[in-house]
Design a protein around this nucleic acid. Structure first.
Lengths: 125, 125
DNA sequence: GCTTGACCTGGAGCGGACTCCAGGTGGAAC
DNA sequence: GTTCCACCTGGAGTCCGCTCCAGGTCAAGC
């Protein structure tokens, strides 16, 4: 099996059918095959690409930048350097994001401890 | 010094003046003092509360849930248990978020390495 | 040969979280 | 006494990323 209906693709990719159509419309997916009656037929390659999109999206990359990445990807091997730069920049942002989340998590835990203290010894806060 | 103008508060809290007004309007800030001519005067307590709001907001808590937390905080010491539960639930979500980001970051780095390989040995991808 | 159901299209609508605007006020500086 | 500036208000507008809708097509099952 190497071709998938919109419904299967939605299920496997984690994007809704509407989102898949939307992504195709704005240019995040290109050249999605169609069968004789005009319906989309997704390939394993499409699924892999969708996996990448999902990863970028969920790590907070805006659609506009994903669009740039898609265009580069369509641009062939001459764009590999730029693609690497884009992904490296994103990687650094993710790194910072994680570090920040860790700090903020500490702040939340500190607050929880503070509340726990106030439960036990009656001090306000 | 223990009272701050809207502009100072914006600068110190990291929220815009408009956002501060918006937060007061929807009930995330309560009883913000006013001077004789009706202007807001923020206190150190307000700033601390804003710090907490910022932490929750930036770790992805939706406004609706922050509103719930604010209401609990206004509800006095009887709500401490609920506040702890809310923060603990959020803490767990943050933890999951971090773990997921780490995995996704690995995926991005793997992709970068793959591109790097293709730069050096000429294989497509 | 009709119903059903999964799909198609273009375009409108939505939810969240702000952000901006018009029109007005009050105190300080010149 | 007027200019200026930081602020006020209610409400409209914006941006992002989908999500939903109306109206239509096609293949399969009964």
């Amino acid at each position: 099996m190497s071709s998938y209906s919109p419904a299967e693709t939605a299920e496997k990719s984690g994007f809704s059918i509407d989102t898949l159509r939307y992504y195709e419309k704005i240019g995040l997916l290109s050249r999605i095959a169609r069968n004789a009656s005009g319906r989309r037929v997704f390939s394993d390659d499409d699924l892999q690409w969708l996996g990448m999109l999902r990863c970028l999206r969920e790590t907070g990359m805006p659609i506009a930048e994903m669009l740039r990445y898609s265009e580069l990807a369509r641009g062939g091997s001459g764009t590999v350097r730029e693609r690497v730069e884009l992904l490296e920049a994103h990687d650094r942002r993710v790194e910072e994001r994680i570090a920040r989340l860790r700090d903020q998590q500490k702040q939340i835990q500190w607050k929880i401890d503070l509340y726990r203290g106030s439960v036990c010894d009656g001090t306000p806060g």
